[in-house]
Structures are given as structure tokens and as C-alpha cells.
Amino acid sequence: MSEVKLSAERRTTFGKGSARQARRASQIPAVIYGHGQDPQHVNVEGHGLFMALKTPNVLISLDIDGAGTELVIPKAIQRHPLKRTISHVDFLLVKKGEKVTVEVAVHTEGELAPGGNMLETLLTTVAVEAEATHIPESVTVSIAGLEAGATIHAKDLVLPAGSTLAVDGDVAVLQVVAPQAEEPAAEGETEGTEA
């Protein structure tokens, strides 16, 4: 995964008023924490961050005005409940070569065996440990030909080289269920009214 470079500036004022002021200036308030350091409060360029966060677990190189560059990954993103705009971001400080635990999306490919069976998704993401600079965007699993009763566990997922599961391998991720038989209609509903 390539780094996304964004500019940021240190934030010295706090509270809702300063956060609103930052957002009006097309910036997003954020906090950088990790490695036992004191949290750093920054304002990040808004549009660039919005675009970067479209990629899950994106690696961001933050060029902080007057404080150098920090390598971070997003850990928590707060959004406005109605507008869905980004209100605040918590970043985790990482170093090249360091391992981090992140949630990675599970995608499926292929078609189930014929017969009307349905795929039940139990987990949409799975926790994996990977090097900060090589975090997989997603994990793809084949469901081709699976029949009712089949279950795919976390240990069945094929992870990219350098990534390991950070959850119990026996956790069910997907399962195939048989179609439910329709209940017969009540007798009164099927009989027509007699003249």
C-alpha cells in the first residue's frame, strides 16, 4: 500500500468552537497518539483526508507544519450523523517495519452451488496483524460451489504474505444456509367466499 501525503498544522485551541472554525477553513481536527508519546492535536487538510479515507487502513504521511513528518493510520473516524461529513479523526502513530492490528474487509467471489441456497455473512471484517506499510486492503474468499451447511472460518481465509490472523481461527466468517420453506397459508385465506 502506498503512502498518501497530507499537510497538517498543530492545533493549539480546543473545544467545539475551534473545531467548527477548522472545518469552515476546510480542515479536519485530528489527534495523533501512540508509542508512549503525548497526543498531538492537529488540523488536517479536509479534501485530501476525505479522499484518503476512502481506502480502508490507508497509510498517511502527515507533514506537520514546523514539526516534521509522522506516519499514521486512521483508528477512529467520527462523522456527522446526518451529513456524513468527517468531524474528527484519531490517528495511530506507526513506524516502518512495525506490526499493527487492523480490521480488513472480507470479500467473496464465485457462485454458490445451484439450489437456492443463501450466503449468510457473519463477519464483514476480520482482524489481522500486518506490517504498517503492507496492510492488505481486503481478503477475498471463494464461495464457488459451496452447498447448504458449509461454513468458512477465519483460519480458512488466505491472507497476503506477511499478514497473520489476530482472531481465533475457529470464528465463523460466512455460512451457507438452505432456503427457508414457505409456511402454508392459513385455510381461511385460500378458500374463496361462496355465493
Rank of each mutant, 00 (worst) to 15 (best):
V31W: 04
E120N: 11
V42W: 01
D170Q: 10
A30Y: 03
A161E: 10
T69Y: 01
D65I: 04
L112S: 07
R24S: 06
Q37M: 02
P114I: 02
Q180Y: 13
D38M: 02
R11W: 00
T12P: 00
L123F: 13
L165I: 14
Q78F: 10
K5N: 03
T101H: 07
T125K: 13
L119F: 08
L62F: 03
V106F: 01
N43A: 07
T85L: 06
A161L: 02
F14G: 08
K54T: 12
V44W: 00
P56Y: 04
L122N: 03
T193G: 14
H41M: 05
S7L: 00
N117G: 07
V104E: 05
T133V: 14
P39A: 06
S87D: 15
S87N: 15
A130T: 08
I86D: 05
H47C: 03
S18P: 06
Q40C: 08
V72R: 08
L62Y: 09
V177Y: 11
E9K: 05
P74A: 08
R79K: 10
E45P: 13
V89N: 02
P29L: 02
G169I: 06
P184H: 11
L93Y: 01
A67L: 10
K83V: 10
D63G: 07
K96G: 04
K5Q: 08
Q27P: 01
K99N: 14
K5M: 03
V31T: 09
E120L: 15
K96A: 07
T190H: 09
L174W: 02
V102K: 12
V173I: 05
T124M: 05
A8G: 09
V102M: 12
V141C: 07
K83Q: 15
R10V: 01
A105F: 13
E182N: 11
A127M: 12
I60L: 09
A148H: 04
S138M: 11
T13Q: 09
T85K: 07
